[in-house]
Each structure stands twice: as structure tokens, then as C-alpha cells.
């Protein structure tokens, strides 16, 4: 027996409301991130990830308040990402109660931010989010490149090399999202997941494309991920966290039951 593989429900939050997939049936949970986070805590989720997709400054203040409320009511780790640009942004989120902060675009514009923040706050709270998209080489061999702006803007950066560099700069974890699969419910892009989990010593969270429980299993057994992140399969009430864990445990994956 060893370290359990983690199941991480993800809340995409805009202006203080969960916007991607909410439980239509149960009106009490209609988009309130604090209530949804409490529900996942009660279900036995191993962590919660909160991705802030708010653009406005006013919305950001709402986010800080929401993070504070979640942290006061949820006794599992909380990762907050989205719009983190400076060491000060990281400090604000950690002070609001986040245990880890996820850095995405800002790491591409300023890789030193990862080093500075890891030195300041410790690697354990610095997650680097990587949005990768498959771009085949001329000979057809798969290669994965980092994209920004929701998968629209290529950067020319190789995703595997980037993950290695981020780990060297002090990132404590990688949150890997396949832009080809995000929202498709076709399962994780296992090629890039395996390539990155093999390339770095730090834990990797697989994200993007989960449509059923077998996908969660494959992310771990085939992709080699240390944790699997999903949103819609949990929000819509299709599956509960205990159902996902029971399914994984039956297939030999070590989980916290």
C-alpha cells in the first residue's frame, strides 16, 4: 500500500458562480461554488480545484471572498487558478485560504515567476498548468505544443520540455489539460499524459475530456497520472466521487475510501 491516486473535482467559476455544468436537479446547488465544494468535501473528494475564469477586477474580489468561504468550510486541499500573474496574486490567494496556486499563462510570459514564488512560498503550493494540443510533425509523429487563450493561440513551446523546465524552476505539481479533449468527454489524451508523467519527478494531474469512470482509470493506468481531475461528470450528478473511487478500487487502483 502506498500513496492513493487522487480524484479532484474542478469548479470553473465566473463572478462567484460555477458556470460549467451544474446540478440542474438539486436547486440548492445551482451554481454556488461554496455549496458545491462542501458537497464534494462530504463525498470524500481528495482535493478541490477552483479555476477562476472571471475577467473583471470586481469579479476578482468576489473570487477572493469565495475562496475564503470555501477554505473555512472544506477540510481538504484547495487549489486556486486562473488569472494569477504576480507574486502578489499568489500571496492574495494563499492568504484567502488556498493551499496551492495554479499558474498558467503568466509562467509562459515570465518563467521566473515560478522560481520566485516557489522560493517564497515553497514548491508544495506552486502548480503549473499546461494546456497542450497535438500538432503532428511532418512525419506524422505526435508532438504536443502549449497553447494559450483557451487553445486558440500557439506558443511554439514543446509541452514535454516545458513541463521539465517548470519542474526545474521549482513547480511542485503539473496540471496538464489536453485542449484537444477538453469538453469532448472522449477521455484523456493519454499520449501527452504519459510523456509528461515520465518526464518529470513531480506529480501530474491529468485533465480534459473525462466522460466516464473508465477514463479516470485510464488516466492513471495508461497515462501514469498521480491524480485525475474532472468537472462535468460530477457536477451533473452522473457519478458521485464515492462511485468513481469504488470503480477505480475494483480495478486495482489505490484510492482513499
Amino acid at each position: 500500500m502506498g500513496l492513493a491516486k487522487r480524484i479532484i473535482p474542478c469548479l470553473d467559476v465566473e463572478n462567484g458562480r460555477v458556470v460549467k455544468g451544474v446540478n440542474f436537479v438539486d436547486i440548492r446547488d445551482a451554481g454556488d461554488p461554496v455549496e458545491i465544494a462542501i458537497r464534494y468535501n462530504e463525498q470524500g473528494a481528495d482535493e478541490i480545484t477552483f479555476l477562476d475564469i472571471t475577467a473583471s477586477h470586481e469579479g476578482r474580489e468576489t473570487t477572493v471572498h469565495t475562496v475564503e468561504q470555501i477554505a473555512e468550510n472544506v477540510f481538504i486541499p484547495l487549489t486556486v487558478g486562473g488569472g494569477i500573474r504576480t507574486v502578489e496574486d499568489i500571496r492574495t490567494m494563499l492568504n484567502a485560504g488556498a493551499d496551492k496556486v495554479s499558474i498558467n499563462t503568466a509562467a509562459i510570459h515570465n518563467p521566473e515567476l515560478v522560481r520566485q514564488s516557489a522560493e517564497r512560498f515553497g514548491s508544495q503550493c506552486i502548480v503549473v498548468a499546461i494546456d497542450a494540443k497535438r500538432v503532428d510533425d511532418v512525419d506524422g509523429a505526435p508532438r504536443y505544443e502549449i497553447f494559450t487563450h483557451g487553445g486558440r493561440k500557439p506558443t511554439g513551446i514543446d509541452a514535454v520540455a516545458w513541463a521539465r523546465k517548470m519542474a526545474e524552476l521549482g513547480a511542485g505539481e503539473v496540471l496538464l489539460t489536453s485542449m484537444d479533449r477538453d469538453g469532448t468527454r472522449d477521455g484523456f489524451e493519454l499520449g501527452v499524459t504519459r510523456a509528461i508523467t515520465d518526464a518529470v519527478e513531480i506529480p501530474v494531474i491529468a485533465s480534459g475530456g473525462v466522460g466516464n469512470l473508465q477514463h479516470l482509470v485510464e488516466g492513471i493506468t495508461l497515462g501514469g497520472a498521480d491524480a485525475v481531475l474532472a468537472a462535468s461528470i460530477f457536477h451533473f450528478g452522473e457519478y458521485t466521487v464515492p462511485e468513481a473511487k469504488a470503480y477505480m478500487a475494483e480495478r486495482g487502483i489505490e484510492v482513499r475510501l
Binding site: 500500500m1 500513496l3 487522487r6 481528495d46 508544495q124 511542485g172 498521480d226 491524480a227
Partner: peptide, 30 residues
């Protein structure tokens, strides 16, 4: 094994202690 050691692992209670009261041996902690 990945480093940092991050996540839920089992703790073996190698001796009795009042702080283990009500917690099973081998319970996972973060």
C-alpha cells in the same frame, strides 16, 4: 515515486496515543 510526496498516504500507528483515539490504524492523512 514522485517527489514532493503529495497526497493521501497511510499512517501506521506504531504505538497507542490519546491523539489516535477514534482513528483506525492505517488511516490515510494528507
Amino acid at each position: 515515486l514522485k517527489v514532493p510526496h503529495m497526497g493521501w498516504n497511510q499512517v501506521r500507528q506504531v504505538r497507542d496515543h490519546p491523539l489516535w483515539h477514534g482513528i483506525d490504524d492505517g488511516t490515510r492523512f494528507y
